[in-house]
């Protein structure tokens, strides 16, 4: 009989995957509600952890739990499963930032100014991700934000790895198109 593989301390799991899970939560339920879903995800994971020694991909395991918690969250809230910040999306549509979402200060060297600018950029980016069709959004989030292989993303979304890869590529193309001309497309304007 082979001995059961020993599990690392749960704290190491939080350290290694906390950020990826937070990105998934933010993409699935929006930045506002992501903290609650992150907490519920890690509490559920901690509860199940001692019996999970056979898990092959720890991050995929956590993302699966996060996805279920996000679904519960939407069901409880009775809201649309798409976290769209309409103001920020309006900013995207018109090619100019929405009120309250100013452009990053150009050439500012001050660290605070840059951090604020990055935070505002993040608001626009989350809105753009939230506005993607659900399959594209999930594919982008699991692969590009959480770093899962397309095959793992496919297990979560249904379908095969090739379809997940296509959905991720389509999603990135839609995102680039949405971000064109907003100054948030990663290019200097």
């Amino acid at each position: 009989m082979t001995p059961a593989p020993t599990l690392p301390p749960f704290e190491f799991v939080v350290e290694a995957h906390g950020a990826a899970v937070l990105r998934v939560c933010r993409a699935l339920v929006g930045v506002q509600d992501a903290d609650d879903v992150w907490q519920e995800t890690f509490l559920a994971a901690l509860r199940a952890y001692p019996e999970s020694a056979g898990v092959r991909n720890r991050e995929a395991w956590l993302v699966t739990i996060a996805r279920n918690k996000a679904t519960d969250h939407h069901r409880k809230a009775g809201r649309l499963p798409v976290p769209v910040d309409h103001q920020a999306v309006a900013g995207l549509d018109s090619g100019v930032p929405a009120p309250g979402v100013p452009r990053p200060a150009a050439g500012g060297d001050d660290a605070v100014v840059r951090a604020v600018a990055a935070g505002e950029t993040a608001t626009v980016l989350w809105a753009a991700i939230g506005a993607l069709p659900p399959r594209q959004r999930e594919a982008v989030v699991y692969h590009h934000l959480a770093g899962l292989p397309h095959a793992e993303a496919a297990t979560l979304m249904g379908g095969n790895a090739a379809a997940a890869r296509r959905a991720a590529a389509d999603g990135m193309r839609s995102l680039r198109a949405a971000l064109q001309g907003t100054g948030f497309d990663g290019k200097d304007v």
Partner: peptide, 8 residues
């Protein structure tokens, strides 16, 4: 394009 998502 998404690097700023990690802000904060």
């Amino acid at each position: 394009e998404l690097a700023d998502l990690a802000a904060g």
